[in-house]
Design a protein around this nucleic acid. Structure first.
Lengths: 211, 211
DNA sequence: AGCAGTTTAAAACAAGTGTTTAAATCAACC
DNA sequence: GGTTGATTTAAACACTTGTTTTAAACTGCT
């Protein structure tokens, strides 16, 4: 067999279609056709469509969050040796930048980032719940670290601003995965790397704004 | 007949359900049951489910965008009389604040804001296209005004930061419509008015960040 | 060879979807 | 009061969905 195994082909196709069309809109018939597998293979390997979703999310989110955690720890350790609070911008970079690096790590990773970016505002709780459940620990680490970085910022305002940050991040991630269409009268969008670099500047300034 | 007319009842129910469950996930059977009308009434009055969506969006978005346009013009006129460029924060407030005022203007308006907030990142183009089409003129006005307010900021970076802004705004709008669930370890969220006030501070600082 | 785990194939299942139809009902007007 | 047009009703249509079932074929391993 030259192709990858059935299970992987299903997950790759799912990642692509869930990201492009959404979870509910994607039909197993279209999915299995794209993956070149039999319709029944999904239920055989993953139990259900929802089981497939969970597998698709876990496959990429676990290593991504682990990468975030490591980078956050590095920033915290560096600050601890110097004896000063960690810079907020460095913490945000540690959380955001892996998302970009990650997108180029695997062929389907870009689709995946769009999927979770969208899940933040999705009406359906299926995707969002799996996502939140997996990101919560590292998000908590980010939150606690930022409280040390910005001790004068009230906790509820920090929380609100992190929500803005997640919104900006999610929106950017999933619209940069869409085919870019020039809107007449507006400038061409930045490159992906430029976009993320400026996103970090944007949210850093926003987080440190007076209140 | 004590109740409002059929057409309005359908639109009210649609607004509520499209916002809560999404456009595709909402079935006409559940919708017409909630509205207390016959199943066929939707196709009779609006031609199709999509026609209903378009009507729901236009009903609220047209006056909302008109309000935004007026407020923007006011800021621009005030700046013109003084002879100085308009302050970026005032422009953003003129664009963002009507969204909040609007939410309290009608019983279903809060649902509606969640609907368009979500549409920004929705995979399906149906909702997003109607939304973008209607908001584009006033968005262009905001963009041009901000270029005057921040003449040193390159156009493509301004565009990117407005994208961040829309992301933060949309995410905030549609998650504040969701039933708030306390997450253990995190502070309780701000009130709606407090959230919008801080959103304006957040994006103002972000827009004016050095680049 | 033989066994177990996989994969395919085709079909059917039960349920849900938007839309259409034709008859019934209602309201208003001459 | 009867007629016309708009509206409502219940039923059916054509189609798609996720899932299950049955059987057959293929895989790698001892």
């Amino acid at each position: 067999m030259l192709q990858t195994d059935t299970k992987s082909r299903i997950m790759d196709a799912a990642e692509q279609l869930f990201a492009r069309d959404g979870f509910h809109t994607t039909s197993l018939r279209g999915l299995t056709e794209l993956a070149n597998v039999n319709l029944a293979a999904v239920n055989y390997h993953f139990g259900s469509k929802e089981g497939l979703l969970q597998a698709v999310i876990s496959r990429r989110l676990l290593p991504l969050n682990e990468l975030r955690r490591q980078k956050l720890k590095t920033v915290l350790n560096q600050a601890a040796t110097v004896g000063s609070p960690p810079p907020a911008a460095d913490l945000l970079r540690a959380f955001i930048e892996p998302t970009l690096d990650f997108r180029n790590s695997a062929p389907g990773a870009k689709d995946f980032i769009a999927l979770i970016g969208r899940s933040l505002s999705e009406p359906d709780e299926t995707v969002r719940n799996y996502f939140i459940q997996q990101i919560l620990p590292v998000f908590k680490l980010l939150f606690d670290s930022l409280q040390k970085a910005l001790p004068d910022l009230p906790a509820d305002i920090l929380m609100a601003r992190l929500q803005f940050t997640m919104g900006a991040m999610g929106h950017t991630m999933c619209s940069s995965a869409r085919p870019k269409q020039l809107i007449p009268g507006f400038p061409a969008p930045l490159s992906d790397t430029g976009l993320v670099a400026d996103l970090i500047r944007f949210v850093s300034a926003g987080l440190e704004a007076p209140c």
